[in-house]
Write a protein that binds this DNA or RNA. Structure first.
Lengths: 132, 132
DNA sequence: GTAAGTAGTTACCTAAAGGTAAGCACTTAC
DNA sequence: GTAAGTGCTTACCTTTAGGTAACTACTTAC
């Protein structure tokens, strides 16, 4: 016989799991969140973004911006000037990602620290060899 | 001339950006976070995990579990029984991902609601045709 | 006239992620 | 003895993400 508790626990797991999967579905890949971070801190134009988000190719940036626009995260504004200036802006909707970005930023900072301290420890293990 | 404010703002952007990128580096892919969610809610054995994380192939689950073990997120415990029973457990370190998982879960829930309400609105636009 | 910037596009390629299907060595249940 | 479960591995294949490099059309500055 199945307990009610088991059923509800199972249901909550499944719901949590698919919520996380839904989020990952639109945010997948190496670049979407980094681009959103760059945009959230004032970067707006194509080449600005390409400089800020290190290592991204023009083709990939262009492609990711299109996807972000389709999903309602980014607005593309064309200014009627000579030469034409194009600005990318975050929508209100992408500001709902604040908590996600913050938790990832905090965890990433902590994680880098952990990896660095592990490297330091590994290095220290070689010191006695030199000292001896 | 560069303003100090500009420099510090640039530095903060760059630091936030690379922290997020560091986090994504170890958590990349379709399955790592879902597997962690499944493990955090009590699933421990291989076939249990495969049933809970819908759509994952044995090969992929096996591969991801190895990567998670290498990165210190998961412990593989082999029990000396007949038949051999193997349990996967989250380490303390993977519990530091709580905030990341929660924010993704909350955002994912909200996002699904938004998409569903958009679909409802699209469907309602067809009603007048039937009513006329 | 030539170099550099702006905002990309295009064609081509590689590497990694992920999926399919079968099988293995073992056990329990019928 | 045969079917089904447990915890995978192996071989093979497809898809997608991502990278490289060249090029376009326009403008400004030197």
């Amino acid at each position: 016989m199945l307990k009610l508790q088991t059923i509800s626990a199972e249901w909550e797991t499944c719901s949590a799991l698919s919520s996380v999967q839904d989020a990952l579905y639109v945010l997948h890949g190496k670049w979407k969140l980094p681009i959103i971070v760059a945009l959230s801190s004032g970067n707006k134009r194509f080449n600005e973004l390409q400089k800020t988000v290190k290592g991204i190719a023009a083709k990939v940036l262009s492609h990711e911006l299109k996807e972000l626009e389709l999903n309602g995260f980014v607005l593309r504004k064309v200014h009627n000037t000579t030469p034409v200036v194009i600005e990318y802006e975050l929508t209100d909707y992408s500001n709902t990602l604040g908590a996600v970005v913050n938790s990832l930023r905090e965890w990433g900072t902590m994680h880098r620290e952990k990896i660095r301290s592990q490297l330091r420890q590994t290095a220290e293990q070689h010191v006695p060899v030199d000292a001896a």
